[in-house]
Amino acid sequence: MSVAIDTGLGLTVRGLTALFNTPRGMALAVADVDLDVAPGEMVGLVGESGSGKSVTLRSIMGLIQTPGHVTGKVEWGGRDLVAMPAEELRRIRGSEIAMIFQEPMTALNPVLPVGLQLEENLVAHTRLNARERRARALQLMNTVGIPAAERRLNEYPHQFSGGMRQRAMIAIALACSPKLLLADEPTTALDVTIQDQILKLLLDLRDRLAMSVVLVTHDLGVIAGTCDRMAVMYAGRIVEMGTVIDVFRQPRHPYTRGLLGSVPRAGAVRTMLSSIEGTPPSLTDLPAGCAFHPRCSFATDICRQERPPLLSLGNDRKAACFHHDRVAAAEAIL
């Protein structure tokens, strides 16, 4: 099928915007998102519930339906996925670009054996014959660490544990050796030892297949343990971006700083956490100026009037805050 297209440039997202027409008004779920993912790179997308992480991934994949509307550019291998005809996009989805969803039960078909679901993907996107497909399915089950693969292929999703279902989802996503994997909270519903296994599996696969990965999570610890670069979302916008090491060492946006202070660390038993006061805003009723200002301890007048642009601060670092210097200079969180 599709001849090797030069995807050497990875993924380039520019001005990605997703609007939903809701009874309470227009909700700007994702606003003007720019994101680059290099080949073989793992980029984390973190933010609180409702900040637009899933909608960002689904917009990249072309999975937003009415009443949603997506604009902007998603460049992949020299083509723009947003402008691409539906038919062509379908061909790319599941082959070059694959997605794993937060709740595997909703993404797996409950009435089809797992093996068949794997094969369906291979039928749609490859020219393998039946015997080759079976062999490939077995190989994929082994790759993702599902024991007794021969028997497991004939079983239904409900016969799998949560962790096994997530592995099966990953196997299906990997069926056509994608170059880009969009993983939406792939471990949130899992126990922590199983989460650890799945994340390490993703890292191994990334290395082996030279795949790019966008990993969505609300857990900064997951980012710290896995990603190369990260983007922090708040109220639909990216507010900070950089290498994981840099952002953790010296956050330049007060929200990132607050998130980092909210997670308990080893060796600080029963100390007060530096929490963020208040709650995230409603998307249909965003505060004027910087959306974070009602919760921000660094806010000044300008923050209530103007929206801070996402500025490059050099060294592959960006932040959307008028006072990023003060934030960077603030004393360490611990």
């Binding site: 922590v192 030892t193 989460q195 650890d196 296994q197 390490k200 890292l203 191994d204 857990d219 900064l220 610890g221 997951v222 980012i223 710290a224 343990g225 896995t226 994981v244 090491i245 953790f248 980092l260 997670v263 660390r265 080893a266």
Partner: peptide, 16 residues
Amino acid sequence: AAPELDPTQRSRVVAA
């Protein structure tokens, strides 16, 4: 297995 906040202390070894 608990995801800690220190990106300099990474491990690729599965905890269990």
